[in-house]
Design a protein around this nucleic acid. Structure first.
Lengths: 339, 339
DNA sequence: TTGAAAGCGCTAACAC
DNA sequence: GTGTTAGCGCTTTCAA
């Protein structure tokens, strides 16, 4: 690889000892070195093309300047912008993200987390929280720095950054109510996640406050956040002949499944049924028809999550913070007045 | 964090020395330890919940079981599936990818690569190659293991996995020719990349072999692989009043730009103009209209790239291999006979 | 087959 | 302000 020039070499070239070189190269201790020595060391570093070995540093300091980023699925367009947000903050502080994809599988998640901890990450930014999973609280108790993004835990809250799901759902329902819809089908997400629960709660309270039909049959829980589940649930709702004129999905992928189910039945959107999604992922504005959706600030979620993480690094006993980011409604062609 | 149990602790518990523990825990040297000792060590490991510290291991062995993955843009839907492919292979061998996003910026790329090398990655899987960039050849000469995916280098070829771009472009042109198009506009990609060049070459030779119009004005080079460039280039082609009935874009994003430019002019696709993309990214089948595109095996590109990487790890002086993966054409609503 | 010992490159007490 | 010293946790000669 690189011709390994070590701190020893620099020390020799500058005529000082490695301890001094270390001090000179460290932001925090740099001022404890005389200006002249500093100059000689800097020159030696440049001349030799010295680049510090972070492995050795990590071994000594037991910190790795590395943070594990736990994502359910990299190919879900929701997450890449969050990762970008995370990287934008981490880069500026010399931290590197170690990204793992868990495929929504608790087993894989556990394995991935063990691997990350073994690699001595300085903490975790986690987008896969489930409500009744003690894993992260336990880790936090053991001193692992953890920030939840996208979803929160059930019990004691750790640092978290999520979008305001209840409000978001309220925006959709207001919009549909204004269009004149009275019976709205809700395809809720898995209820073992904070987003699944919060969006459903938002649906319920908005339906109530707008005086819409509160028929329990208008609520169906998807088993997963997938297109397939969206199609299955809408199909079976249609099969049951429950009347409704609009459907709001807990996520854009579920809404895509609605498109599929409707296509299969020869139904057209929004003529036969209005459809709204959630998250406003990239490309949702280009679908046929363009999807009305709640826009969540994906990049910002990542960015704020990383900031929270760094803040925690700087001050270990801060109280956990819960950040709720604002959402907005992107109104498009998939929603229209009922016929 | 974790109550740090070290190899020392295991050695003590098993009544042996650390050297023996090390041998026992290493696949390659495990058979040089007696069955009895092995048992005691394994028991101690379990009892104490010992997990090896890869940092210390890396410092000693100068390998990190880590590979840098250099991606231009994580939010480009083309890349996440490749990363999945990479992870699927790396996981099984205990390697971790270190993913960096360069934003198509050579400066950021250089910085990212330095950081990766400093972190002692065992090599690089690179999706950002440019034709006349000596960086990677130089690194390879210095002994860094490198696999190019998605794009290749210009000169001496390193290990690489790409899709068969010339053939792919041929498929599109054949399709359009069969529909009856004779003047096809090509929005080629940047010519400093192998994909940009190969797809344009494929266009030229297919146009020739089908006896279509070879007007040089029907070829325009985009400055970047972006929606914006697609819109700009199509708009200016339309402004110049060059006649054409179809446009083939070097990439789906460029094709999306064509959709935008056409919308702005009130043109409709495919009635006024057929449009074809390249890569067949996720969701392209759901656009309005669904985009005809060349499907490249994104996951497989990543997977084969990672395999090549591991093969190189196992046998340092293999000859570089160039893998060309087959493509197929996804015919959809954006292409139709000219009117 | 196992033990002893050295050292990967760095940081951090502690002296001076 | 700088040198000295002692490791961080592991692997790998070399002997026994």
């Amino acid at each position: 690889m690189t011709p390994n020039v070590t701190m020893q070499d620099v020390a020799r070239a500058a005529g000082v000892h490695t301890g001094t070189v270390s001090r000179a190269l460290n932001e925090a201790t740099r001022d404890r070195v005389s200006a002249d020595t500093l100059r000689r060391i800097d020159k030696a570093v440049r001349d030799l093309g010295y680049v510090p070995n972070p492995i050795a540093r990590s071994l000594r300091t037991a910190t790795s300047n590395t943070v594990g980023v736990v994502i359910p699925d990299l190919t879900n367009p929701l997450f890449p912008p969050m990762i970008r947000g995370i990287q934008s903050v981490l880069d500026s502080r010399g931290f590197s993200p170690l990204i793992v994809s868990t495929d929504y599988d608790p087993q894989r998640e556990a394995a991935a987390i063990s691997a990350l901890l073994a690699r001595q990450v300085d903490g975790l930014i986690v987008a896969t929280a489930r409500l009744n999973d003690p894993t992260f609280e336990r880790l936090a108790d053991q001193g692992t720095r953890i920030v939840m993004i996208n979803r929160r835990l059930g019990g004691r809250d750790l640092d978290s950054v999520t979008a305001d799901d209840e409000t978001g759902m309220g925006l959709v329902i207001s919009h549909l109510a204004e269009l004149g819809h009275e019976r709205i089908l809700c395809l809720a997400g898995p209820q073992d996640t904070s987003t699944g629960v919060a969006r459903l709660r938002g649906f319920r309270s908005a339906v109530e406050s707008h005086g819409l039909d509160r028929d329990q049959k208008l609520i169906r829980i998807c088993e997963s956040w997938t297109t397939e589940q969206g199609a299955i649930q809408l199909t079976s709702a249609l099969d049951e002949n429950i009347p409704f004129t609009a459907v709001v999905a807990a996520t854009d992928l579920i809404a895509l499944g609605c498109y599929d189910a409707m296509a299969e039945r020869g139904l057209s959107c929004p003529a036969d049924l209005s459809v709204a999604g959630y998250n406003d992922m990239p490309l949702m504005d280009r679908l046929a028809p363009p999807l009305t959706s709640v826009a969540v600030p994906q990049f910002d979620i990542g960015r704020e999550g990383a900031r929270l993480f760094l803040a925690g690094m700087d001050d270990s006993d801060r109280l956990p913070r819960t950040i709720l980011l604002p959402v907005s409604l992107s109104i498009r062609g998939s929603t229209a007045p009922p016929v």
